[in-house]
Structure formats: C-alpha cells, structure tokens
Design a protein around this nucleic acid. Structure first.
Length: 637
DNA sequence: CCGTTCGGGG
C-alpha cells in the first residue's frame, strides 16, 4: 500500500512536472527578457541599422543593455551618424545615462573624430570618472592636439580626479615638442609618487617621451628600471636610438634583447631595419629579412616598405625591386621608397618610368614629388624634373613645400642656370635654407662660377661659420680659377674662426664586421698594412694620371703635408682596406657620413680603373657607383 | 564593464 502510493505519487509528480513546465519554471529560469534584449544580438551580428530601427520602435523601453550594445557597435564601426541617433534617442526618451553610458557616448564621439562633441559630453556630464577624463585626453593626444591634452590633464587633477596607469600612458604621448619634455618630467615625478612609473605601458610611454626629447640616457634608465618588458617597451627603446641616428646603439640593444628572447612584431623590425639602413649593414639586413620571414610577418606592407628602403640604402636595389614586385598590395609609401631608391642611385630614367606606372595606380603625394624631383636631379634629367614640378603645381594643383623648392633649385643649379636658381630662392614663399645655399655653392663649383660662388659662400659662412665644408668648396672654386691668393685668404679666414666640424668617417662591412675609419686614423689594428696599401695605390694611380687636388686641404701647411692629409681621408683608408681582402671581391661597398670630397672622388675613379674594381660609395647625399673610371653621379653631387 | 604604450617613404 505504502509502496504503491509512493509510486503513484512519484508518477503524479512526474506527470505534473512535464505537464506544467511554465509554472514551475517561474522559479528556476531567469526573469522575463527585457523589451530591448533583441538589440544586442542584432548589434553583435553587425546588423546595426536593424538594431537602430528596433530602438526607434521601442521608444522609452530601451534600457542600459540596449544602449550599451548600440554604442559599442557604433564605436567599433566608427559610425558617427548612427551614434548621434542613439544619443538623440536617449535625450528624447529622457533617459538619464549612468556615468558608464555617458562615458561610452563620449568615447563614441572620440572614436568618430568628433572631439568637440566629445568635449561637450564631458562638460555636460554631472559626474565623471577616470575613464571619462582619460578617453578625452586620449582623443586629443591621438589627433595631435598636445596642448589641449595637457590642459585637460591638469583640469582633471584640479577637479580632484587622480590619474591611473591609462591616463599616464596616454598623456605622456602628448609630451613632445618644445615644452613637452618639461611637462613630461613633471608627469614622470607624479607617476613616481603614485607608483605607476613601473607599469609597463606607462614605462613605454615614458621612455618614448625621453627618446623623442633626445634624452636617450633617461629613456634607457626608464627601460632598465622596468620590472617587466614586452614587445612594445623593447621596440620603444630600439626606436628611440634609431630616431636619434644612434644606429649602432639600436642594433646593440636589439642584439642584447634578442638573445634574451624578446618578442618582435612588425614595428620592432621596421625600427631595426631603419637603423640598419643608416649603418648600410647589408648582412644584418639580410638576416633580419630572414627573421621577418620566420616570424611569419612578411606580408605587412609597413614591413615590406622598410625592407625596400633598407635594401636600397644598403646598396642592393635589385632586392628592393624584388620585394616591391612581389607585394600583393602597395601603399603610396611603397612607391615612394622605391622611387627614392632609384633616385639615390642616380637612375633618373628608372625614377621617371616608375613614376609613370605609379600614377596609374595611386595618387602621388608630396613625398613622391620630392623623390621624383630629387631623382631627376641626381640622374641629370634637368628638363624632365622641371616638367614634373610644373605637373605637380599646375597639373595636380599641389602646393610645393620648402623641400620641393630645394630640389628645383638643385636642378637649376645642375643645369648651370644659377641666376635662375637665385631668382627662385628670392620669390619662393620660404626662407632659403643652408641646404639650398649649399646646393648652389656646389653648382658654382661645377660650373666654375666664381662671382656667384663668392656671394653664396659668404651667405653660408654667415649662417653656419662652423661648417668647414663650405670653406673647402670655396677653396675648390678659387683653385679651379687659378686664384691662389684667394685660396690662401680662405685658409686665413678659416684659421680666425674656431672651426669644429663633424669628423669625416667612413666604414666598410667585411666578414660581418664593420670597420670604421676616421680621417688620419691611427687606431685600426691593421693601420700599418693599410698605410702601405694606400701608398701602393697612390703610386700606381699617379702613373695613370691622378693628380691630388691640394685645394681640398685648408690647413696652413706645406704641399707635402697637404698630400699626406689628403691620403689620410677616411674614404681612402676604407678603399685601401677593401682592396686588401684576401679574397678580392669585385664590388667594394663603402659608406661615408659626410659628402665625399673632390679629391677622394677622383682617387676612387682612378682606383676603379687601375685595379678593375667596382666601388660603391654611399655619402650623405647619394650613392656613387664608380666603374672603370667613371661615376654614376657624372661628377655632380 | 569603458579609456593605454612602440610605428614605414624625402
């Protein structure tokens, strides 16, 4: 009996259970869905417009989650008009957003590049939290409005809101420019007090701030003190060295971190390749290219652009072109890098040809024209260059900047139209730069224009009296005109002034080692053999007709000493060293920090002829490929 | 919950 009733009871219950699921589920299932609950799935599926009409239909029934989903979708898609609709709907429904939702609105405006609306939102909010303030600071920072970002940061603290690690990381990116470092240091001390300075993002931002202020030692100190490192902080320190031209240091710190197993991304390799371009370190460049492939990053356009640039600056245009040709998509920068590469190598006709295919695919920008104009100048295509300038101004309606004028002045000077170049300098809407005067002075040397040369040199000596290169060229001009008294006068002039010039430095990469030479260098371990080699070269090329150009020496010494000073020029040391290799290679690649001097250029031409070698010499201005006694620069540089 | 750091070509 008892057992039966139990079974009965159980069956009844079981029966009831399945028969009345609704009543029972009232206690175990979630509460009924809010009316706006279908907005979120629509937003997540990317059906933003359906969600918006849903919002309109629901009227005042839209709640927190609905607005949140809508705003998130607008933020993700940078949908400004849609975001405004959501905002308007909130106002019409008299919905009072929480601090969170108001902040989401603010962020929506920031992401849609409507900083005024965002600022208005921030001002109108009855309450703000650290996220609201930081989002606004970030908006100003990312749009380059540094002053506004810093002002808002101050306002935030005046309002009693303490910054957090996000705020610090953001606001420090606005600490560049003239007063940036001053503010940056203050913010650094604030971060120290609040212990956010060792946060990885804050640290990356801090060290980048110092690097951009040329305070690389402080940047390094911040980096070394960081408790943790990630790919961004490591990249930031490498980039810091590279930005300041401290290419060897950039490579050193990369080697160190790489040994420690640092992670790399495409930014890291871009910065590193930049440093290797400066060093003309083709071997390392190839190795990094290999790493890029192994890290499965080779299809980043940014990285391919860096590789194009690296190979061309390391003297290997063929590889640049291979990468360029294999790119699935190219940006305007890819084209510009390739154009600049041809230009620096003096291949003007390739520049023109490439530019013509470029305009079929993308619209050239200011840098494209700079590359084309400078390429035409280096390639000797004077009229073509002037036509391109005309095309830029009248065809494309672009406003040339000071760099474009510099190229055209260079072009005119090369053509010997020096008065015309002077006229252009007078009527252009910019102040002439030392580079322009320098280019004109070079033109006066090549075209033996003594009178304008004197005038231009005087200008240069006023503006940069410390640059002895100008004295040397003026001396060359006088010497070419046979005005030896004036040569002596220039020499006197130079003695009066305390001339501190950047020491000439050349380097050559042999057997994966960089050998660096300074003028009259006595430090290289093989200096005895190098000197002996130079003397051997000297004797042999003299037989072939080489005459040292003593006007390249301005020290007040006798001719014999001048000769020995000339023979001590860093590029000659490097050439001699390059010829000493036990396994002689056909091509000797040399890099120099300044412009090559007239005498060394001539020396290299004779060596290439007598010793049947190719000499590739990259100076601060361009490549000189010297073969069988002639140079691709056609003696104009 | 939401907001963050490094960045290619003259």
């Amino acid at each position: 009996m008892h057992g039966r009733s139990r079974v009965f009871l159980l069956r009844r219950i079981h029966f009831k259970d399945s028969d009345r699921p609704r009543q029972l589920s009232c206690q175990t299932s979630p509460p009924p869905l809010p009316p706006d609950s279908n907005l979120k799935p629509l937003c997540l599926q990317g059906r933003l417009h359906e969600a918006l009409s849903g919002m309109a239909t629901l009227g005042t029934e839209v709640r927190f989650h609905g607005y949140d989903a809508l705003l998130t979708a607008c933020i993700d898609r940078r949908a400004f008009l849609e975001g405004q609709l959501v905002h308007a709907h909130m106002i019409k429904s008299q919905y009072l957003p929480s601090v969170y939702l108001a902040t989401r609105l603010l962020i929506m405006y920031v992401k849609c590049d409507s900083l005024n609306d965002a600022r208005h939102m921030l001002e109108a909010m009855p309450e703000r939290n650290v996220v609201s303030w930081t989002a606004m600071v970030s908006g100003y920072s990312q749009k380059g409005h540094r002053a506004e970002a810093l002002e808002l940061f101050v306002k935030m603290m005046e309002a009693g809101q303490l910054p957090d690690e996000y705020t610090f990381a953001t606001v420090l990116t606005s600490c560049t420019g003239p007063f940036g470092p001053k503010h940056g240091r203050q913010i650094h001390s604030l971060a120290l007090k609040t212990n956010f300075d060792s946060h990885m993002f804050v640290g990356s931002s801090l060290l980048d701030m110092y690097a951009k202020a040329s305070e690389i030692d402080d940047a390094r100190r911040v980096f070394d003190m960081l408790p943790d490192r990630d790919v961004v902080s490591c990249t930031a320190i490498i980039s810091g060295y590279a930005q300041l031209g401290l290419d060897a240091e950039a490579l050193e710190v990369f080697k160190l971190l790489h040994k420690e197993g640092m992670e790399c991304n495409y930014v890291t390799f871009s910065c590193l390749l930049n440093a290797l371009s400066g060093l003309a370190a083709l071997d390392y460049g190839r190795q990094v290219h290999g790493l890029v492939i192994r890290c499965e990053l080779p299809f980043y356009v940014v990285l391919q652009n860096s590789l194009i640039d690296m190979y061309s600056k390391c003297g290997s245009l063929i590889y640049s072109r291979k990468i360029f040709d294999n790119m699935l998509e190219r940006s305007v920068i890819s084209w510009n890098a390739m154009l600049a590469g041809y230009g620096k190598h003096g291949l003007g006709s390739e520049v023109v040809r490439l530019f013509k295919s470029m305009v079929q695919e993308v619209r050239p920008d200011g840098v494209s024209f700079l590359a084309v104009l400078s390429g035409c100048s280096h390639g000797g295509l004077v009229d073509e260059g002037l036509d391109f300038f005309d095309f830029m101004v009248n065809g494309q309606r672009m406003k040339p900047d000071i760099g474009h004028y510099g190229c055209v002045i260079d072009l005119l000077g090369r053509a010997g139209r020096i008065e015309k170049a002077l006229d252009l300098m007078k009527c252009m809407p910019f102040e002439p730069t030392t580079a322009m005067w320098g280019s004109l002075l070079g033109a006066c040397r090549v075209h033996a224009n003594v009178s304008i040369g004197e005038f231009v040199a005087q200008k240069l000596l006023d503006i940069e009296p410390e640059n002895s290169g100008n004295f040397v060229i003026l001396s060359n001009i006088y010497a070419a005109a046979g005005r030896w008294q004036d040569v002596a006068r220039v020499r006197e002039l130079m003695k009066e002034r305390t001339v501190t010039k950047e020491p000439g430095r050349s380097w050559i990469n042999l057997d994966k080692t960089m050998h660096t030479f300074y003028s009259s260098d006595r430090s290289h371990p093989q200096r005895e053999q190098i000197n002996a080699k130079i003397m051997e070269l000297y004797e042999r090329i003299k037989e072939a007709g080489y005459v040292p150009d003593l006007s390249c020496v301005l020290h007040d010494v006798d001719d014999e000493q001048k000769e020995s000073i000339l023979l001590g020029h860093s590029e000659k040391l490097a050439i001699a060293f390059g010829l000493m290799g036990s396994t002689p290679c056909k091509l000797i690649r040399i890099t120099k920090n300044l412009r090559i001097c007239v005498d060394c250029h001539n020396f290299a031409k004779y060596v290439s002829k007598v010793y049947a070698r190719y000499i590739s010499l990259r100076d601060s201005n361009r490549f000189h490929l010297i073969v069988r006694g002639t140079c691709t620069c056609r003696d104009y540089w």
